[in-house]
């Protein structure tokens, strides 16, 4: 890609600003990337939510089909991933809101918040599924 860009600029190799491969991974960086990935996953996951709601609106037969697809082991796996993405993106979003207010930028709280994101999202998701099965 760098060569094609250089050619577009008139065949001259110009220096490019450093990108991901230059930096050693850090907690804030990795959690920022995961935030974007979970966001994109949630974007496409809305198809599932819309499908489930529409099937319920169409009628019991369509709803039974949707429940069968989403209740299959692969459906459950996708839904588990979707739940985790939502929980993780939610906690990450709170971190970004805190940063938007200019708080917690020092090294310790910054690292703590970033680590907390994954440390909380995984057990919370598991807990949600335990609750979901318990009340069924």
């Amino acid at each position: 890609m760098s060569t094609s860009k250089a050619k577009a600029a008139g065949g001259v190799e110009r220096p490019l600003s450093p990108h991901l491969q230059i930096y050693a991974p850090s907690w804030t960086m990795v959690m920022s990337i995961v935030h974007r990935i979970t966001g994109a996953a949630l974007y496409f996951g809305t198809i599932l939510l819309a499908y489930w709601l529409i099937s319920a609106a169409v009628g019991p037969k369509a709803f039974a089909t949707a429940q069968w697809i989403l209740g299959s082991w692969i459906g459950r796996l996708v839904l588990f991933g979707y739940t985790w993405a939502l929980v993780h993106h939610l906690i990450g979003g709170i971190r970004f809101l805190i940063w938007d207010f200019g708080r917690c930028f020092d090294e310790k709280p910054r690292l703590m918040l970033s680590k907390l994101n994954i440390v909380l999202s995984v057990p919370l998701t598991v807990l949600l599924w335990i609750v979901a099965y318990a009340i069924k």
Partner: peptide
Amino acid sequence: LASIWAVAKL
């Protein structure tokens, strides 16, 4: 639109 239609209908 699809989701809100479904929620409204239900």
